[in-house]
C-alpha cells in the first residue's frame, strides 16, 4: 500500500465528511424554503439575505446548547445512539461513486473512497445499520414516547429492508455485478440504456423503500410530531439531537445519489456533462423527498407494514421471477 494512495484516501474522506456535513445543514434550509413555498409562506427570512445564514444560526444554537443527560436514561447507550446514525450514514458513502474520474494536475482521481466489489450491498447494509440510532436512542431514553418510536423503528426496519433488497435484486441480475461503478458502465450508452426502462417496477419499489429507509414523510412515523412528540429525539438536546439530523439529511443525499446510479444512468459516459447530470438527478430526488413531505399525509405503522409485506414484497418477488425468466429464455 503506497503512501500516495493513503494520502489520497484520507483527503477524499475529509472532503466527503466536510461537504456532506455542510450539505446536511444547507439541506435543512432547502427543506424549510421549499416547504414554505408550497405552503405559501416565506420561510426563514430574517438571518442574512433570504435567510441564508439561518443554517449558521442553527449550528451555533445546537453547538452551544447544554448537553443534558436525563437521570433515568441508560447513559452510555443514550450517548452513543446519535453517533451511530451520523457515523453509519457517512460510512455507507464510502462505496458510492459521486462523480466520474477526472484528472487534476496530471493525477487521476477516482471520486469513490473504496471501489469494493459489493458496493450496492455494502451501501444498503450500512445505511440500514443507521436505524439502530433511533431505536437505541428511543429504548435508552426511559420515556414512553421514545419507546413507542423505538418499536416503530424496529417495525419499519424489518418491513422495508426486504422490499429494498428484493427490488434491487432484479437490476443486479441484469448487470451481473454488485459494484455501483459497473452499474454505471452498464448504462453508459445514454438514456436508451437506462435500467429504469427495463425495470420500472424495481425502480418504483426501491424509491418507496428509500422513503422508509430515510424515514421521510409518508413513512415519517418514527418521529411523528403530532403523535409521539419527537419520538426518539424527545429527551435529546443540543448537538446530540443535531447528530440525528445530520445523519438523516446525509442519508437523504446519499440515497439520492444511489437511486440514479442504479436506475437512471448515473454519470453516464463520464464526461463533464454526465457529472452535472448526476448532480441534477440527485437534486431532483432530494427535492422529491421535500415535495412529498409537503404533499402527503403520514401513514400509520400498521399501514406501512401492510404495504411492505402484503403489497410491495410480493410485487418485488414477482418482478425478480419475471426478470429471471426473461433472462433465461
Amino acid at each position: 500500500m503506497d503512501t500516495a494512495y493513503l494520502i489520497e484516501t484520507v483527503i477524499k474522506v475529509v472532503v466527503l465528511l466536510l461537504v456532506f456535513s455542510a450539505l446536511a445543514g444547507i439541506g435543512t434550509y432547502f427543506e424549510r424554503k421549499i416547504l414554505a413555498f408550497m405552503q405559501r409562506r416565506l420561510g426563514p427570512m430574517n438571518v442574512g439575505p433570504f435567510g441564508l445564514l439561518q443554517v449558521g444560526a442553527d449550528g451555533i444554537k445546537l453547538f452551544t446548547k447544554e448537553d443534558i443527560i436525563p437521570t433515568h436514561v441508560v447513559a452510555p447507550i443514550f450517548k452513543i445512539a446519535p453517533v451511530i446514525t451520523a457515523a453509519t450514514a457517512f460510512m455507507a458513502a464510502a462505496a458510492i461513486p459521486f462523480l466520474p474520474q477526472f484528472t487534476i494536475f496530471g493525477y487521476t482521481v477516482h471520486p469513490i473512497i473504496a471501489d469494493i466489489n459489493v458496493g450496492i450491498l455494502y451501501v444498503l447494509g450500512v445505511m440500514a445499520v443507521g436505524l439502530f440510532g433511533p431505536m437505541l436512542g428511543g429504548m435508552a431514553s426511559a420515556n414512553k414516547f421514545s419507546l413507542l418510536s423505538a418499536a416503530r423503528a424496529a417495525a419499519v426496519f424489518i418491513s422495508y429492508e426486504v422490499v429494498s433488497g428484493l427490488a434491487v435484486l432484479a437490476p443486479i441480475m441484469m448487470v451481473g455485478s454488485l459494484s455501483l461503478v459497473d452499474f454505471n458502465e452498464y448504462q453508459a450508452g445514454g438514456i436508451g440504456s437506462w435500467i429504469v426502462w427495463s425495470q420500472p417496477v424495481a425502480f418504483v419499489l426501491f424509491w418507496i423503500a428509500a422513503f422508509a429507509e430515510t424515514g421521510r414523510t409518508p413513512f415519517h412515523l418514527i418521529a411523528n410530531d403530532h403523535e409521539i412528540i419527537d419520538g426518539f429525539g424527545t429527551e435529546y438536546s443540543g448537538m446530540r439531537w443535531g447528530l440525528f439530523f445530520i445523519g438523516e439529511y446525509a442519508n437523504m443525499f446519499f440515497i439520492s445519489f444511489v437511486i440514479p446510479l442504479i436506475f437512471l444512468g448515473g454519470f453516464g459516459d463520464g464526461s463533464v456533462l454526465g457529472a452535472f447530470a448526476l448532480l441534477g438527478k440527485m437534486a431532483f430526488f432530494f427535492f422529491f423527498f421535500l415535495w412529498t413531505r409537503a404533499a402527503w399525509p403520514d401513514v400509520r405503522p400498521d399501514q406501512l407494514m401492510w404495504l411492505c409485506w402484503k403489497v410491495l414484497m410480493p410485487l418485488a418477488v414477482i418482478n425478480v421471477v419475471i426478470t429471471g425468466l426473461v433472462m433465461m429464455f
Partner: peptide
Amino acid sequence: FLGAIQIIVYTGAVMALYAFGM
C-alpha cells in the same frame, strides 16, 4: 460479499432480538 452479507443479516436479526427485548 460475505462481509456485506454479515452486516445485512445480523443487523436484521439483532433488530428482531431488540423487539423481543422491548
